[in-house]
């Protein structure tokens, strides 16, 4: 079969196999996804994964569409994952990084967004050091879809969707599972989106880590207004040996070394002693429990090497599934309403 024939054949696959994805303009966080929509995105991603498994990974579905990845923070896997997702679907993908653009000349995020919109871009995939940056673009640009590729410590919805996809794929369903997220929850956008996503899908979420790196208000210590139901159901346990008992999923978060300098931790040594995911601790989880990590890993700090590369680890599957999830979302946005 020639290359062009392969493309012609494949072109039929993606649209017809796609489940009923509701129309969507932006992917900002998982708050406005229903559990049904999450399942539909996962189903759609399965179709996309099939394309990724082919010898010739190219379908013309998004031919003529322009996707810009606008990254104000360094990233390897997320940016490449989006780029690959767009290219496999034949979109034109333009990568823009803060250091190599007019951003260095002081152009504001908003003006950069307006400029890209004026150029006729269909989707902007944005990563920014400040929470809410994608919302600013979504509020001010009316002709461009926005995908949040990580904003400050707020959200990383495509990461959460790929995590949900991975768990669903491995364990069959998410509802009723015990999911333990361990580490620096306070500063983690991955944790926030996953807390939201897993809760929405009916899992029991337990967050675990040093009290200084957990949101105080989820520990019910601030005495302020009552928490909304979705947050009140989250269990907060500082002792990992207790938290991990009978867990179905254990997700370790990256520990930034600057947390120690800022006084959140006495030492990395003590962190390792109390919160590293080790063989000994994993033995307390359910047999066959999944070990996840959003990357990049500090092997030997939040996760031991033997666990990171052991039989329970699905860390590589997470990366593969990330491309499929991002294909599904680009497809959903580009074929939805303008």
């Amino acid at each position: 079969m020639s290359t062009s024939q392969a493309i012609e054949t494949a072109s039929l696959v993606v649209p017809t196999d796609s489940p009923h994805l509701p129309p969507r303009k932006h992917v900002l966080d998982l708050d406005d996804f229903s559990s049904e929509e999450i399942l539909a995105v996962i189903e759609s991603a399965k179709g996309m994964a099939e394309v990724l498994g082919r010898d010739i990974k190219k379908v013309p579905t998004l031919r003529g569409r322009v996707v810009v990845t606008l990254f104000y923070e360094s990233s390897t896997r997320t940016r490449i994952s989006f780029e690959e997702a767009g290219k496999v679907l034949s979109a034109d993908v333009i990568n823009m990084t803060a250091s190599a653009s007019s951003v260095e000349k002081g152009e504001s995020l908003l003006n950069t967004g307006l400029t890209l919109q004026a150029m006729g871009v269909d989707v902007i995939v944005v990563r920014h050091a400040y929470s809410g940056a994608p919302y600013l673009l979504a509020q001010q640009l009316d002709r461009v879809g926005i995908i949040n590729a990580g904003d400050g410590i707020h959200a990383h919805p495509t990461q959460a969707l790929l995590d949900l996809y991975t768990v669903q794929d491995k364990l069959g369903s998410i509802s009723g599972l015990k999911v333990v997220i361990v580490g620096d929850v306070l500063h983690s956008r991955v944790a926030r989106s996953n807390i939201w996503g897993f809760s929405k899908m009916g899992a029991k979420v337990v967050i675990c880590g040093p009290a200084t790196l957990l949101p105080l208000d989820l520990l019910h210590r601030n005495g302020g207004d009552a928490l909304p139901e979705e947050l009140a159901s989250i269990e907060v346990v500082t002792d990992l040996d207790l938290a991990i008992q009978d867990a179905d999923v254990v997700m370790a978060l990256r520990l930034q070394s600057e947390r120690q300098d800022a006084g959140f931790l006495p030492s990395l040594r003590e962190y390792i002693r109390r919160w590293q995911v080790t063989d000994e601790r994993l033995a307390k989880a359910k047999p066959g429990a999944l070990v996840m990590h959003p990357g990049p890993m500090n092997e030997g700090i939040e996760i031991s090497s033997s666990i990171a590369h052991g039989g329970n680890s699905v860390i590589e599957e997470q990366v593969t599934n990330g491309v499929a999830i991002r294909m599904a979302l680009l497809y959903q946005l580009c074929t939805g309403p303008k």
């Binding site: 929470s131 400050g152 926030r192 949101p215 105080l216 208000d217 989820l218 601030n222 909304p228």
Partner: peptide
């Protein structure tokens, strides 16, 4: 203000 909304939005909070 520090609280669940700041946590939810990932914004640094100011405690009472």
């Amino acid at each position: 203000a520090e609280g669940w909304i700041a946590t939810r939005l990932g914004l640094p909070g100011i405690p009472a």
